[in-house]
Simulated scan of single mutants.
Amino acid sequence: MKTIRFAATAVAVSIATLLAACTTMGTATSGYPTLNGAKPLVIGHRGASGYLPEHTLASYKKAIEMGADFIEPDLVVTKDGELVARHEPNITATTDVSTRAEFASRKTTRKVDGVNETGWFVTDFTLAELRTLRAKQPNAARDKSFDGQFQIPTFREILELAKTESARTGRTIGVYPETKHPTYHVDAGLPIEPRLLALLAEYGYTKKDSPVIIQSFEVSNLKALRKLTQVRLVQLVDADDVDSKGNVTLVAPFDKPYDFAVAKDSRTFPDLLTPKGLAEVKTYADGIGPWKPYLASAAHVMGADGKPRDLNGDGKITDADRVALPPTDVVKNAHAAGLFVHAYTFRSEAPGLLSDYKGDPKAEYKRFYALGVDGLFSDFPDTAVSARDGK
């Protein structure tokens, strides 16, 4: 199993240098070490999902109000062929479907990316049925007081929201759809891509400068899309976890694009981030969307007993007990290949912030802006915008 390894030297100096660089990057529109020198984009991850139930019109609107440049809907397909926004085909965790007696018989087990999942799946519901459900906050650590208030939106409604809010705010609000589990949807006879392109064409979103970016963890669908549209495409890059030394770990189905697994292609996600892999990605995509440890990872401090030390003394071992490692060359190599870099996912909860950031989520944003990321996905877009614009 392949992993990316990171040197653990000069950590404090590296972080201090990067954060200092952030304070001297110049104006809000220039001076950033991005691919084209523009200020990095803030992408509202599933909307403003740190505050409201994800993938709801309310969450997307809040992200826009907080200054997000793009809103990000994950797209899945209903039984009757409608594009809707949910994080996964399995809607058990993000809706109240498990409490609805009328849908009890729909509970089933399906294979998603080679793994059996049990629950309720969008592909078994018509849009009308789906509209009777209500969204809920899947993260137990976040505010659940808004559960049950919002419907599942269609992609058309999201495009309409972006259009309306662009007119209201006087700035262009982009839409950044992800095709969720393309192979799963093809196997279900409900491919995402033709539906997505048809709807984008209705709105005139067919060019490279259209306010749309399409992303996917799979490769073959992006290659097919490249032949059909000029809209910007992004290759997402996943992994399973990070070990105590800061090495990215790979466990199926997070070790490689699932279409690679189906085709018995031995390459893994890290292979896409080598200079050779990036050169290939450039033939069909405009950018990469890597999990942020690929750009700069972190390690636990090990005690004499060989176990990670509880640096903050809260009795738990979390990312807050890790120390940052020097950055990799992924951003530099991607830019050299002509690819922009949009990293994911940035959050504000204390257990997810490295000890170096001392509980300040802005410190993490500033570090990655200084690394030269061209954009990032945030559950808390107001914090991302504030860190970027010095507010």
Results as ranks from 00 to 15, higher is better:
280 E>L: 10
183 T>I: 13
109 T>W: 02
230 Q>R: 13
162 A>D: 01
53 P>D: 06
70 F>Y: 15
260 F>A: 04
161 L>R: 03
224 A>Y: 04
304 A>Y: 01
212 V>D: 00
357 Y>L: 08
228 L>Y: 10
326 P>T: 02
291 W>P: 04
280 E>H: 03
315 G>E: 10
349 E>S: 13
9 T>I: 11
177 P>C: 00
243 D>W: 05
160 E>Y: 03
204 G>T: 06
342 H>S: 04
277 G>I: 11
83 L>M: 06
81 G>M: 13
273 L>A: 01
106 R>W: 04
141 A>E: 15
284 Y>E: 12
79 K>S: 05
164 T>M: 07
171 R>K: 15
381 P>Q: 12
362 K>M: 13
23 T>V: 10
391 K>D: 11
66 M>C: 03
250 L>G: 02
83 L>A: 02
15 I>H: 09
309 R>N: 06
252 A>Y: 06
47 G>W: 06
267 R>M: 09
236 L>Y: 01
87 H>C: 03
265 D>E: 15
146 F>R: 12
186 V>P: 01
203 Y>K: 06
279 A>F: 03
323 V>K: 13
348 S>M: 10
261 A>C: 04
160 E>N: 15
379 D>E: 13
366 K>W: 11
290 P>N: 00
269 F>W: 08
375 G>I: 00
326 P>S: 04
85 A>N: 15
115 V>P: 06
337 A>E: 01
324 A>Q: 12
157 E>H: 04
349 E>L: 14
283 T>F: 12
272 L>D: 01
82 E>W: 11
278 L>A: 07
225 L>F: 02
48 A>G: 09
377 F>A: 07
131 R>I: 02
83 L>T: 03
334 A>K: 02
22 C>A: 15
121 F>E: 11
6 F>W: 07
345 T>L: 11
3 T>E: 14
72 E>Q: 02
359 G>A: 13
109 T>L: 05
379 D>P: 10
33 P>Y: 12
211 P>M: 14
210 S>R: 11
64 I>F: 08
76 V>F: 06
343 A>Y: 00
255 D>K: 04
64 I>Y: 05
47 G>Q: 10
39 K>F: 11
349 E>I: 14
336 A>S: 08
23 T>E: 15
258 Y>G: 09
375 G>W: 01
226 R>Y: 04
355 S>D: 11
289 G>Y: 01
151 Q>R: 14
166 S>H: 00
29 T>K: 12
165 E>Y: 02
322 R>V: 04
61 K>N: 15
145 S>K: 09
285 A>S: 08
271 D>F: 05
285 A>V: 04
76 V>A: 07
155 F>Q: 03
163 K>A: 12
382 D>N: 13
95 T>D: 01
159 L>D: 02
35 L>S: 06
119 G>S: 10
334 A>N: 03
330 V>S: 00
290 P>W: 00
43 I>D: 10
55 H>S: 08
28 A>P: 13
241 D>L: 09
307 K>R: 14
352 G>V: 09
185 H>G: 05
348 S>K: 13
247 N>T: 01
